[in-house]
Write a protein that binds this DNA or RNA. Structure first.
Length: 573
DNA sequence: GCCGTTTTCGGCCCGACTGTTTTCAGTCG
């Protein structure tokens, strides 16, 4: 089994963790972390590149040494350096660094001073009051350790974007009404529209930071004030969501938005560019010595470091800076480009609304078409249609279309991909449909080889236009099925089969990296909601954000085409 | 350990807040 990129990245991250506890050169630690990030963001399998004899040191942050180590991992599945380090540093110390406020230095100091060997022993020591006896530690840190270990709070919890929105939007509106606040916006991964966010970063412009923050920490939903200064505060809401509020002067707005939108890696790259130009970039502005030369707007900041404005969704240090430099940033797809939705359900299967209601909702959104893709017969629990039911639905759709002007319901189906990769309906029946989406809804536990073959076989059926929610993952709830995505994408390209980007915020499947991989291979993406009600069509914006994070342009998306162009494309299968 | 308009050495992003100590290292974002 080839080694996955994520496995190589994890090994490097683990090495970095262990080196950090050993108090190794911090730039060496950073080198391992940077390399891990680079590897994680590659859309192609690193293992394949090694097999093909490619020079990995061409990749950013991978030099001769790390290229050699990657080759070794690909060959043997192991890295001797990691084995050595693991023998020298107790894993429990690394685990202890996940306690908020405890980093590598303090974790190691504690374990050495108290002769600890496990987190359980650390919990006992905190309970017995021995932590506060260690030099440099006091009662507060001891209480923090005790509480964190009691709650098993590793600080790792992430919130789905749509869930975070429910808390974030009312909160930022409330902050805007605080006296002295000129404006306030949410920055961070929320603004970059990541599928999950770890915390909310809210930026407010105002002069009297102390007073604004006093009001902020007084908000009803604040459960705990983690830190509170004159310009910055961190609180935990009752929901468990952490919120950072940062107050800056109005003149620094653009620089601060840039800074707090991140990502961290994108910021570091930006500050390096500033340095190269003998400037200094921080959240207050871009400075030439003591003089601020930019900072009002993000555009101005980018401009002065020689770049066009870069959309927040691209700010992940995945090549956007080089692309911006060369004037090769993608023309990102936008909501207005969409002409329809290619996956939704009616009350004929497990949807809530009738065909007519779904059609009217789609017209209200300004769409030219909507594909009705109810479940096939295998999906009994979801009211899957029998052959006869689908037959009747095709007729109903044809009758409805008679009444529409400039709009069309597409007769479709979300047909089940069975365990062996065959489909739940006959080719003859599928042949009568405008659009066929084929999806996996069962046997999630097959191994990677079988699962991949299963999808490949489904794609070989020329009646299949789109593979629905390809990995089947549900964010925070269910891992996706084991798939060799590169084989899937290559085959999709060969077959002319599209892959779906499912806009449901629980799915967002494909991921951003997979979107980009697909586009790089020329595979078209169906950007669809999988709506089960008229309201569900509104989820399209989450899928749009994900598509943009995947660098997709309108041409990469199937349903930016009008019906005649789309039907011509579909007929080519 | 990586990188290079100062290219094989000597740099490596920047600032706020906390806890513990009394001037700052560590941690975090």
């Amino acid at each position: 089994m080839p080694v996955h990129n994520s496995e190589i990245a994890s090994i490097f991250d683990h090495v970095a963790d262990l080196l950090e506890v050993q108090d190794a050169n911090r730039f060496r630690v950073r080198a391992y972390r940077n390399a891990a990030a680079t590897i994680r963001d590659q859309s192609r399998a690193i293992a394949d590149r090694v097999e093909e004899g490619e020079d990995l040191s061409d990749l950013p942050d991978i030099g001769e040494d790390l290229a050699g180590k990657i080759a070794e991992i690909v060959r043997t599945g192991e890295l001797p350096l990691l084995e050595d380090l693991s023998g020298e540093v107790p894993e429990a110390i690394v685990e202890a660094t996940r306690i908020p406020g405890i980093g590598p230095k303090r974790a190691r100091a504690l374990f050495e001073a108290l002769g600890l060997a496990s987190l359980d022993e650390l919990a006992e020591a905190a309970e017995a009051g021995r932590v506060a006896d260690v030099d440099g530690f006091g009662d507060k840190t001891q209480a923090r350790i005790r509480d964190a270990l009691e709650e098993k709070d590793t600080g790792e919890r992430r919130f789905r974007l749509d869930v975070a929105e429910d808390f974030a939007e009312p909160l930022v509106k409330w902050i805007r009404r605080i006296d002295g606040v000129d404006k306030a916006e949410i920055a961070g991964s929320y603004r970059r529209r990541k599928e999950t966010v770890g915390d909310l970063d809210i930026l407010a412009a105002g002069e009297d930071g102390g007073a604004i923050i006093d009001r902020f920490v007084d908000h009803d939903e604040v459960e705990e004030v983690i830190s509170q200064g004159k310009t910055r505060s961190t609180v935990r809401l009752r929901s468990g969501l952490n919120v950072d509020l940062r107050v800056i002067p109005k003149a620094s707005w653009g620089a601060a938005m840039h800074y707090f939108t991140g990502s961290r890696a994108h910021n570091i790259a930006g500050r390096r560019r500033a340095q190269d130009r003998d400037l200094k970039l921080n959240e207050y502005g871009l400075f030439d010595g003591e003089t601020r030369v930019a900072g009002d707007t993000e555009e101005e900041v980018y401009d002065r470091i020689g770049l066009p404005w870069i959309a927040p969704v691209l700010r992940e240090d995945r090549g956007e800076i080089t692309a911006a430099e060369k004037g090769e940033l993608p023309a990102l797809v936008k909501l207005d480009d969409l002409k329809g939705d290619l996956h939704c359900h009616s009350d004929a299967s497990d949807g809530k609304n009738t065909l007519r209601e779904m059609a009217e909702a789609a017209q209200e959104r300004g769409y030219d078409y909507l594909a009705i893709t109810d479940h096939s017969k295998r999906q009994t629990q979801a009211g899957g249609l029998s052959e006869g039911d689908l037959d009747a639905q095709i007729e109903s759709i044809a009758a409805l279309n008679e009444r529409f002007d400039g709009f069309r319901l597409l007769a479709g189906c979300e047909v089940d991909i069975l365990e062996d990769g065959t489909l739940d309906f006959s080719d003859d029946l599928l042949d009568r449909l405008d659009l066929v989406v084929a999806s996996v809804h069962s046997h999630f536990d097959l191994d990677e080889e079988d699962q991949t073959e299963r999808i490949l076989r489904a794609m070989e059926n020329a009646h299949v236009h789109v593979i629905g929610h390809t990995t089947g993952r549900q964010i925070g709830q269910r891992k996706g099925i084991a798939l060799d995505m590169e084989r899937i994408v290559k085959s999709a390209a060969d077959q002319g089969c599209a892959l779906e980007l499912n806009a449901n915020p629980i799915r967002l499947d494909l991921s951003d990296v997979h979107c980009r991989m697909a586009a790089d291979h020329g595979v078209k993406i169906a950007l669809s909601t999988d709506a089960h009600s008229t309201g569900g069509l509104g989820n399209i914006r989450y899928g749009m954000d994900q598509a943009r994070r995947g660098w997709l342009s309108a041409d990469d998306i199937l349903n930016t085409r009008g019906w005649s162009a789309l039907s011509a494309l579909l007929a080519r299968r």
